[in-house]
Amino acid sequence: MNVFEAVKQSITTRQAAEFYGFRVNRTGKIICPFHSDKNPSMKVDNRFHCFGCGADGDVIDFVSKLYGISSLEGAKKLALDFGISYDSKSVIRKLKVIKQQKSDAQKYAEAENRVFRVLSDYYYLLKRWKVQYAPCIEDENWHPRFTEALHRISHIEYLLDILVFGSAEEKALIVMEYGKEVAVLEQRISEFIISDTGSSYADSCGDAGVQECGRSQGKPDIKREWQRKEHDQELFDRIAI
């Protein structure tokens, strides 16, 4: 039996209130400690309810609120003060299970952020390749990375725009359709960073600009940066017109 179960089965809120110094009148009420109460307005029995401020809960809620501590700390305090034994390991196991469980919304948010991060890294890598591997003379054979940059950069930019400005349905479709490709891209980018000779990924951004190198600057809020880029482009277009 965990501490929550042990405490709730062993102690009533009235017993706890009396133990911590509250005087219970003949109608089973005490002065409410949670608001400026002049006449007893909190009913205490197995649970508690204040008819003045609406505070309500069980014995653990009462002690937690009274001392400004968490529910777990409140339950442990009651168990210690009243000498109640419990299985401490069961509490740890329960907390681990709760921590490990993620809602569908959390899982989707993580997946969407991952897709955006990887595609953004790839986009800035393509921009770099487009400059770094551009042919020096007209008849020079194109480097495969330059060719890849020309073929893919517009499409990747389109996907990133959807992930920032698109509807929820459009974003979800991108996450579903490109999940596997993103995993491959993430591995490929990592391998490129490791195998790239001469300098680190951050130091070798060259003419593409260090600040545009996907991972080099960490990008604390990469979606906001993308929105700013789009705003600047719109402003430029208006001026050009």
Rank of each mutant, 00 (worst) to 15 (best):
L95D: 04
L125H: 09
S103I: 07
V175T: 04
A208I: 02
Y124I: 09
V115P: 00
Q106R: 01
S103F: 06
Y178D: 03
E169G: 03
L160E: 09
K180G: 08
L150M: 13
S204N: 12
E191M: 11
I153M: 10
Y124H: 13
A134V: 07
K102I: 05
N141V: 13
S120T: 10
S195P: 05
A168W: 03
D139V: 12
K130C: 04
R188Y: 09
Y178R: 01
V184C: 11
S204M: 04
R188I: 05
S103Y: 02
K102P: 01
E138T: 13
R128Y: 02
T197D: 13
D161W: 03
I189G: 05
L119E: 02
E157K: 15
E148D: 08
H143Y: 01
S120K: 11
I153T: 13
Y201I: 02
D161K: 14
E186M: 10
I153V: 13
F165R: 10
S120Q: 10
S103C: 01
Q100V: 03
A208V: 04
L159V: 07
G166I: 03
F192P: 05
E140P: 08
Y108K: 00
Q187N: 15
Y123D: 05
E181T: 12
E112W: 01
D139P: 07
L173N: 09
S167I: 01
L119F: 11
D161P: 10
R117F: 09
L160P: 04
K107C: 00
Q106L: 06
